[in-house]
Each structure stands twice: as C-alpha cells, then as structure tokens.
Design a protein around this nucleic acid. Structure first.
Lengths: 199, 199
DNA sequence: GAACCCATGTAAGTTGTTACATGATTGA
DNA sequence: TCAATCATGTAACAACTTACATGGGTTC
C-alpha cells in the first residue's frame, strides 16, 4: 500500500490535481513509483474521505480541475510511514525466471533476450542520468519547488536525498547492463563451442 | 502472468506436487519468483483444466499427494513464452520512494533505513552466494535433476544459464550494498555539518 | 472538423495476500 | 499427546491493469 504514501509525499511539495500527479507518476516520479490515472483518482478520493487530503475545484483554469492538498493529519500519517521499517516485496523477476528455463531455446533466442535486457536498462539509465543532471544543475522543477518551501539549512539534505535515490537507480541500471554484456560474451563462447562440436 | 510459466518451467525438470513447488517457490526458486501455496494450488488446477499439465494422485507415500506433470501442450506454450519479448513491469520501489520524502525525518531515522537496506541486501546476497556455490560444485539438487534429463552437450548451457541468473542477482545485491554504504558516509557528513552549524 | 491534449471517472478482470479450514503423518 | 511437518484447499480482500466513457479546450 505504498501508492497512498507516494501520493501524500507528492502533495508535500505542492498541491496538485489527479491529472498532474498521473503525468508525473508516468514520467519523472514513475522512475520510482509508477501508477496509472485510473488508480490515482480513486485513491485520492479515498484519501479525501479519510481527511488526509482536501480537494477544491479550481476556477482559475476554467476547466474545473480538482486540486488536492495534504492536511496535517495526512502529514502525520505520512511521517509515521516514512519512519516505519520498509517491507520489501518478494522477488519476482520476469527476466531471470525466463533465463533459468531458457535452455529450451536456441542460443540465438537467448541472445535476443540478453540484448533486450541491456537495451531496457540503457533506456532506464538515460532517464535517470537526464534527471540527475537536472537535479545537480538545480533546474529540476519539482526539486526547486520543494526547496522553496523549506528552510535553507535543510536544502543539502533535501537535494542530497534526491541525488542519492537517482544515483542508486543509476548504479542498478549500470550493474544490469554490465551483467548483460558479460552474459553476451559468455554466450559467444558457448556458440563457438557448439559450432566446433560440429552440427 | 509469469506464475503460470514459472510453474510450467519448474515441471520441465521433474513432476512435482503443489506442496513441493510451494516449498521451492518460497525457498531456492523464490530467489527469482516467489509464490505462496494459496496461489500455486489454484493455478495448477487451471493449468490442468487447460491440458497444459496432468495430475495423478500418488499412492507411494500413502498420503494421497497429487503430482503434476507437464504435457507436450504445456511445453509448447512454455517455449512460446520463453521466446517472446519480456514485458518489464513498471518500477515500484518502496525504499527509494521513501528516501525521496525522507527529508521530513531526522537523519537518525534515515540512517536506520539505509542500514536496513544494506542488511536486507546482505541477506539476499548470502542466499545467492550459497546457491551459487552449490551450483558451481555440482551439488545443487534441482540442477542435477535437470542435467540428468538432458543430453551431455547441453550441460554447459543449462548450468551456465543458472550461474548467469544467480550472478546477476549477486551483482545487483552488491550494487545495492555498496550504494547503501556510500549513502551512510554521505549522511555522516550531513550530520557533521548540522552539528557544526550549532543546534 | 479532426486530432490531440486536458481532465475525471467507472467497470471488469487479473494477480497476489492473508486468513481460515481440514486432515494425515511423524517424532519427541 | 503435543507439536511440527506434510498436504490441499477456499474466501475475502487489496492492488493493479485494461478498457470503456465522457466532455471541454486547442491547434491544424
């Protein structure tokens, strides 16, 4: 049930509409926690019903956008969750489980999977690095907003944590890419041995 | 829908009961794909209804254990899935999302999370390394069974893929541990700066 | 006026968790 | 005989996905 807290956390930076949140949870925020709009809207309604957020229909854009703000009760519940121990979900890795049974495939098909794996994590890495650059340059919009609402002596901590999280994802992506490349080299040697064996 | 294929894959090594599968999916197999018995039993029933597995009540143990075996249709569907492109699930990282909002916590609470993170991945690493040692020594039971059922010239591939998958998990765990350690060092410097600031 | 973005929602279905329920066998 | 392990299941619920549905505003 982390979506709830991801939403509350998001709203501690600034009030936002469901649409706006959905955009970011499919974009920059989605690098940490993805959610679709059809999950976000009902969850915001539940949070409002529990008094953890309030909502107002804004007239400024003439479109009747519903803007959510976090309440003190919401902040309290968020802090409680932040301090609590993380419950790590069980491992479910669709690529590794495939690899284990991939001995039923031709080496060429295994190669395709490893190349896809590298490509997938290269795309993630590009996203992480782009965001990391913006954060380090101080041009990342959501971080600027978050810093603006906080005392100067906490700025190092706020920005540092964001960098840390991104750096962790960068490391992870690089580790997956390096692994896939090693795996491809190993596969070459297997294929060479197979050809030498004469088939 | 990978559980289905994880079960079919499991049964390509040897026929097994739901209980046996549940043990391994919470244990060695669980390092790649965890599932509980209450999910496994109904799924096996569905697979049996679709003719992808057959089941027989074994009398040998006097306990009426239901043993499932994969059918040619099941193997065909498994191979199809193995060759298909992996659909990577969206990122949902309960620790990183916490970290991003952790600027609302005291540094001591952040420290506790980073230490928990390191500990969590150290525990995973221990499991991966233990299994890797067994695989490399040739004493890992399920790998022995899988090799026994396959032609000698494929042994390198079968064992190699298993090593590869484990090595990937080892790399990932090490990357998380190294990251957590760097993060703890950074947190030290933040705390030192805070104390120097005088509070 | 067609296509696209803004904006919010519901409904049906799948996947996974937690708890409940049962009964046989084994070992201390 | 008590506890643990073996063995299979169901029910209720929570989380998430996909598809459907609607309507205003903007741009070509």
């Amino acid at each position: 049930m982390s979506l709830k807290y991801a939403l509350l956390g998001f709203l501690t930076t600034e009030p936002a509409s469901g649409y706006q949140i959905a955009q970011e949870f499919g974009d920059s925020m989605g690098w940490f926690w993805y959610a679709s709009h059809s999950q976000i809207h009902p969850e915001l309604q539940r949070l409002a019903a529990r008094g953890l957020v309030t909502s107002e229909v804004s007239d400024t854009d003439g479109r009747g956008t519903r803007v959510y703000s976090i309440t003190p009760a919401g902040e309290a519940e968020l802090k409680e969750w932040l301090a609590a121990e993380t419950e790590y979900p069980p491992v479910r890795d669709p690529e590794r489980i495939r690899l284990i049974f991939a001995d039923m495939l031709e080496p060429a098909d295994i190669r395709a999977h490893l190349e896809q794996h590298r490509k997938h994590h290269e795309a993630l890495l590009d996203g992480y690095l782009a965001q990391l650059r913006e954060v380090l340059r101080g041009t990342f919009p959501r971080l600027r907003k978050r810093l603006a609402a906080r005392p100067r002596q906490s700025h190092q901590l706020v920005a540092g944590l964001k960098v840390l999280a991104l750096q962790g994802n960068v490391d992870r992506a690089r580790s997956e890419i390096a692994w896939a490349e090693d795996a491809l080299l190993w596969l070459n040697s297997i294929e060479a041995a197979e050809r030498a064996d004469g088939c």
